[in-house]
């Protein structure tokens, strides 16, 4: 009855159990992919590739084109990154390099709490608080001052509704900042103090330490943090559905209403009773899956190249 006699069997059991659990994840991935591919077949058979390049989304005639949703998914995510990454970087640098403990602690906790807020709350806040302010203050200004400019004007032209692609991008930026910040802060703290101290000892400024020591040391982690934020921005559903204006049209204006892949699915899936309509929505899901996969793959490749360059 001693523990030692019992152990080999237990070890094997534990191995098998954890192996089984890991295989289950793989199986799940394959099953989801299979479901998406099978669900996409009807619409891909009837429309072929025009599904991806047409901007007609018409449930009445049962013709579906995903181009606006795909493009607007990418645009909102890019807006979110352009705003979110520098802000997160700034906060993370401040928290790890500059802030005294009595500031860093509460701000750090606040960021973790922001990350825990459910996305629907951001959506509601965006719709009821942010959008009206954005519409009456910023959009009226852009309409009056930017819209009349010849070439870039149309990008900002839209009735001042406060709801649209740019609003969705900004809300997404606010949502991904806590994630990126928390992760960047964690990787920045892994930089050995001796490296930083040496740099300071050589007379480096704070910025030089961040730029030459911290960032190169944490390259992988920083890229990872940005990718995490991008992944979240691409897939975010409810908050975007609230503020993007839900219209399947390509518009030149980033102030105008649009629709992302996930917001279209959330809006239409329950009521899609024609076979092609629900198939079109599943195909949108597959497209998002592929886009996310490509983003991850590109990130991996990017990291590999960085590693090679730095000779690790």
């Amino acid at each position: 009855m001693s523990v030692k006699q019992f152990r080999p069997g237990f070890d094997r059991g534990f191995h098998n159990l954890t192996f089984g659990l890991s295989m289950f994840v793989l199986l799940l991935l394959v099953a989801i992919l299979a479901f998406l591919v099978m669900g996409s077949l009807p619409v891909l058979k009837s429309q072929g590739l025009s599904f991806f390049i047409s901007s007609d989304w018409n449930p009445v005639t049962d013709v579906y084109g995903a181009l606006p949703a795909i493009i607007q998914t990418l645009i909102t995510a890019i807006i979110a990154l352009v705003i979110g990454v520098p802000v997160s970087f700034g906060i993370a640098v401040f928290l790890t390099e500059l802030a005294p403990v009595w500031v860093a602690r509460p701000v750090g906790v606040a960021i973790e709490m922001l990350a825990a807020i459910p996305s629907i709350i951001y959506g509601m806040w965006g719709l009821f608080v942010f959008a009206p302010t954005f519409g009456t203050v910023i959009q009226r200004w852009t309409m009056a001052n930017l819209a009349p400019i010849p070439v870039i004007g149309p990008v900002f032209a839209s009735p001042p509704m406060g709801i649209g692609i740019l609003t969705a991008g900004i809300i997404l930026a606010i949502m991904i900042v806590p994630f990126i910040t928390a992760m960047m802060r964690d990787v920045f703290t892994t930089v050995p103090a001796v490296l930083k101290e040496s740099a300071y000892g050589l007379g480096c400024t704070r910025w030089e330490v961040v730029h030459r020591i911290v960032l190169p040391y944490c390259r992988a982690g920083t890229v990872g943090a940005v990718m995490l934020g991008l992944g979240r921005a691409l897939g975010e559903t409810m908050a975007v559905t609230f503020v993007i204006g839900n219209s399947h049209r390509l518009s030149a204006s980033i102030m105008g209403p649009g629709a992302t892949i996930s917001s279209s699915i959330a809006n239409e899936f329950v009521e899609a009773d024609s076979k092609l309509h629900s198939s079109a929505l599943v195909t949108l899901g597959l497209t998002l899956f592929v886009i996310t996969f490509i983003v991850l793959a590109v990130a991996r490749l990017f990291l590999l190249r960085l590693k090679k360059q730095s000779g690790h």
Partner: peptide
């Protein structure tokens, strides 16, 4: 039950 709206914004 859903149509291709030529103009406007959509609320859920």
């Amino acid at each position: 039950k859903s149509v291709q709206w030529p103009v406007g914004v959509g609320g859920k």
